[in-house]
Design a protein around this nucleic acid. Structure first.
Lengths: 126, 126
DNA sequence: CAGAATCCATCGTGATACTG
DNA sequence: CAGTATCACGATGGATTCTG
């Protein structure tokens, strides 16, 4: 577990564990990464980068490491030249896919509703 | 909508709308606030503060304003002395309660599993 | 009571350049 | 190919003080 995740797991042990989920799943690219790994089973670092439309490698690396630390994905290194690293969902990661689906569903519904509001009221307060 | 939320709604319109959900629900106290409002129907500013174990009023105010901007809660001001402000879930807020439930369920399960791992391995790498 | 104003430390994201 | 190192910057959370 990441330090941040562990802190939240420890401190908020009582009510609102939703914070835990958000701490683990929240972060640029993370939902997309998990969704892609759910669809493709296994992806290499470069493949992920292309599918995500090129986040900087530093950022992608960080997101992947955090997901690994939190136990959602596994990282397999093939010691060869050029290097090859494969990522896939762990059991824990698989267990999160229904939740990701719900997040996506509600987010989509929310976005559509808000977009239609934007259309009806182009400039909010004039 | 908040500017941040709107940006995400616009830019990520295609895949991963899970980011939208996280943008709206994520943030210190927000899941707790929504859960409490779901349970109590209506709460005043001070009541929320006490139930949340006293975040600073500045932070609580910000979280509430953001939730209001994003359309999840409503704010009712009674112009009287001393002032009285009531918060409750909007329809959109109510629509998010099942999702919050899922977030809480997965978070709880995750936290329990990680805690038991912590017990089995007190110091991770020695 | 329900905040607003000010200030500050930290974090997350990203750009850029370099490497085994 | 799959990173690491360094730097910069805005956003976020919070402490403190003040107010209609």
């Amino acid at each position: 577990m990441r330090e941040k995740t562990e802190r939240i797991v420890r401190e908020w042990s009582d009510s609102c564990d939703a914070e835990v989920s958000i701490a683990v799943l929240g972060g640029a690219w993370k939902p997309s990464i998990l969704t892609l790994l759910g669809e493709h089973e296994v992806l290499r670092f470069g493949e992920l980068g292309r599918l995500l439309q090129d986040p900087t490698s530093r950022v992608l690396t960080r997101q992947l490491r955090e997901l690994e630390e939190d136990g959602l994905i596994t990282r397999t290194v093939y010691r060869q030249v050029p290097p090859k690293v494969e990522y896939r969902l762990s059991e824990l990661g698989v267990s999160a896919t229904p939740l990701l689906g719900e997040l996506t569903r509600w987010g989509t519904q929310y976005a559509e509703q808000q977009r239609s509001s934007l259309d009806r009221v182009p400039s909010p307060s004039e």
